[in-house]
Structure formats: structure tokens, C-alpha cells
Design a protein around this nucleic acid. Structure first.
Lengths: 114, 114
DNA sequence: AGATGTGTTGACATTCAACTCAACTTTATG
DNA sequence: CATAAAGTTGAGTTGAATGTCAACACATCT
């Protein structure tokens, strides 16, 4: 399974939306040359918060691009950082090295809570 | 509830174990003056991985000190970063702003898995 | 008092992520 | 072709995190 790079994926999405690098960069608040480099994988993916802004401008959910980077938005990191119970949960989860299915099962439990 | 600072807490633990700043610093691999500054809250708490090493030397679980900083060890961050299912879970959890009890309940579910 | 172990302080250093800026090249358009 | 819009490249910048180093002070032991 030849996985596409972050840059390739971003470039495809951007083009499919008919947005130029300069337009995207302006909306996000970065230099357009930076977008170019990211799209050609000359630089690592942007900060998570920048990815979120990019996806807002492009009108797509940020999940796919975020998942490719292994980064979490500031909002999520803060929510965890402020909550020892959440930290505890994560440390336990890490020592158990859960499978994808197990994470999925937990996400189900999550939805049952509300 | 007058919460103790990170520095105060560390200093107490270290003294209770009869370890000097220099001994601790040497075991952890930092300069002893850095320990001093952290203990007196002249500097922010160390990196999560350094906190873990400190706790290893002092023979205490890192949970309390880590919880005070809102930081996660590299091992945990990596485990999450490499697992889109885990990321998905966390983004969902964040939008729900779970209570401590709810996190606790999830930690229970976690243990049921094995 | 002198030496030795311990702790404190101020200034400075290092590393890295996440970019910016200026110059250039390529592509599309009239 | 001429012009402009779009994209690429190399070098440099900025800020935050995480410390180091040298100098000094204090306490204790002999």
C-alpha cells in the first residue's frame, strides 16, 4: 500500500478546490512559498493548528491530514494537559499498546456516555 | 486549596529520599544548578522525559509530577501520534469535554479490555 | 579558621519547529 | 511573443523549550 505523502495529499485537495498556493497561504497566514515546500515535501508538515486552518479554507475536515502527521491541535493538547484524569488514561493506554479495534471500541464507549 | 508548586513538590520528594541536587542531576543528566532553579520555580518544569528520569532516581511514580505540568512523555506522544484511531478518539473526547468521572469510567473500560 | 559539601543566581548557549524573504523558473493567457 | 500569474528554491529568521557555565553563598565538619 503505497501511502501518499502529506504534501501530495495537500496538493491534490488544494487543486481539486481550485485554490492557488497564494490564496491558501493568505487565508492561513503563512508565506505562499512555505505552502509550496510543504506540498513538495521539502519541509515537514505544518503545525497542527496551521493544518486546521488550511482545512478550513479548503472546506475539508482536518482529520485525514492531521492523522498523517501524528500531531494534535493545541485545543486537544490543552484539554488533556489540564486534566490529570485524561493523562492517567493515556499513560495506561500507552503501556497497553491498544490495537485499532480496541481504540474503536473505546470510541464507542465514549459515545455511549452522552 | 493552596496547591503546591512543582518546584516545592520536587524539593520535598528529593529531600525525603536523602538525595542531593548534584546526585539527582548526575543521575538524570542535567546540570545541578538547573535542578536548583526548577525547585525554586525560577524555571518552568523540565521536559516530560526528564521528569520521568527524576522520578526513577527518586524511586517514585512519575504520575504526580507529570500531572502538575500537563506534559506527556515522548513514549505516550509517539504511541498516540502513530495511531490514527487514538487520535480520532482524542479529538472526539476533546469536543465532548469529559468530566473526571467520565475519564475514570473510560479507564475502567480500558482495564476490562485485557 | 580552612576545607568541603550543598545550594543559589545571572548570563548565556543550544536545539528545533515553523516559518519568512528574495530571487528565480515555469505555466497559463491575451 | 509578452505579460502576468503561479510555483519553486536556497538562505536566513524567530521564538519557545530546555537547558549550561561560572561565580558566589551558606552550612557543616574537623
Amino acid at each position: 500500500m503505497e501511502t501518499k505523502t502529506f504534501g501530495q495529499t495537500l496538493k491534490e485537495i488544494r487543486r481539486s478546490k481550485g485554490v492557488t498556493q497564494r490564496q491558501l497561504a493568505a487565508a492561513v497566514g503563512v508565506d505562499f512559498s512555505y505552502i509550496s515546500k510543504v506540498e513538495n515535501d521539502r519541509m515537514p508538515p505544518p503545525a497542527a493548528d496551521t493544518i486546521v486552518k488550511i482545512c478550513e479554507k479548503l472546506g475539508v475536515p482536518p482529520d485525514e491530514l492531521l492523522a498523517m502527521t501524528g500531531k494534535m491541535p493545541t485545543s486537544v493538547k490543552e484539554a488533556i494537559g489540564e486534566n490529570p484524569a485524561a493523562q492517567q488514561f493515556l499513560r495506561e493506554a500507552q503501556t497497553m499498546t491498544l490495537t485499532d479495534d480496541e481504540w474503536g471500541s473505546l470510541t464507542q464507549q465514549l459515545k455511549k456516555l452522552r
